Computed example of a mutant assay.
Amino acid sequence: MNIPSSMSRLKGFRCPREVIAYAIWAYHRFALSTADVEDLLAERGVIVSRETIRLWVNRFSAHFAACIRRDRPKPNDKWHLDEVVITIRGKKHWLWRAIDTDGDVLDILVRTRRNANAAKRFFKRWVAQFGEPRVVITDNLRSYIKPVSALAPQADHRAYKGLNNAIEVSHRLTWKWEKLFGRFNSHRQAQRCLSAHDQINLILGPRRYQLTATSYRHTRNDAFSLWAAYTAEMAA
């Protein structure tokens, strides 16, 4: 990816917006540390500290994730819902994740509890945004029963752990993140990082094994074009 400087500079930032966008792209696309991104930029003649890159990621990742949510097509009407435990400062938290049958992540929610209230808050967001699904697949957690029946009464709710293997694959992103960068320091950090990372990888990480080489190149070029357009929308 080239780093041109044709766009206007963000007010208050020394580096062009393309440099900031490139750093965020590399950080999320390859799950690199800020030190790794610092070295990539240095090789291109851009000298910034890893702390500066961390601030860029924290400030602008949400912008790219919001643009992707805004422009993404309506997801498939068959949803998989699941929750996995994560540890934050020695305390157990629950990461709730929803994907459609194509494996695209709708979004995530980090909560301290694994009960009906948490399940309702989680499920309600996606029904309000995308409408009622046709099929909802969950594990055997009983906390899903009332929220699904109340918010999507026409949906076919299938509660069986063996049917939910697709979302277990999606959880691997979280485990990979924790393996590379260690545990999250706060509830807010986990929500911010994972929510943005899942959405950004929808366009930056197409399933290569499902595509021919030509189709993959077209998909990759489309992703680069979208990223450039979202870069142009960045605001200080």
Rank of each mutant, 00 (worst) to 15 (best):
E38Y: 07
L40D: 07
L40I: 13
L41V: 12
L41D: 13
R44P: 03
R44V: 08
V46R: 07
V46I: 15
I47R: 13
V48E: 12
S49Y: 02
R50N: 12
R50D: 14
R50W: 07
E51R: 15
E51W: 13
T52D: 09
I53G: 06
I53A: 12
R54V: 05
R54K: 08
L55Q: 12
W56F: 06
N58F: 09
N58T: 11
N58Y: 04
R59G: 11
R59Q: 15
S61T: 02
S61Y: 09
S61D: 02
A62K: 09
A62V: 12
F64G: 00
F64H: 04
F64A: 06
A65I: 05
A65N: 08
A66I: 07
A66C: 12
A66T: 07
C67R: 13
C67I: 01
R69E: 14
D71C: 03
R72E: 07
R72D: 02
R72K: 11
P73T: 11
K74A: 15
P75L: 00
P75Q: 03
D77E: 13
W79N: 03
H80F: 05
L81D: 07
D82A: 02
D82K: 07
E83C: 06
T87S: 00
T87Y: 01
I88N: 03
G90N: 08
K91N: 08
K92F: 01
H93G: 03
W94E: 01
W94Q: 01
L95I: 00
L95G: 10
W96R: 00
R97G: 05
I99A: 03
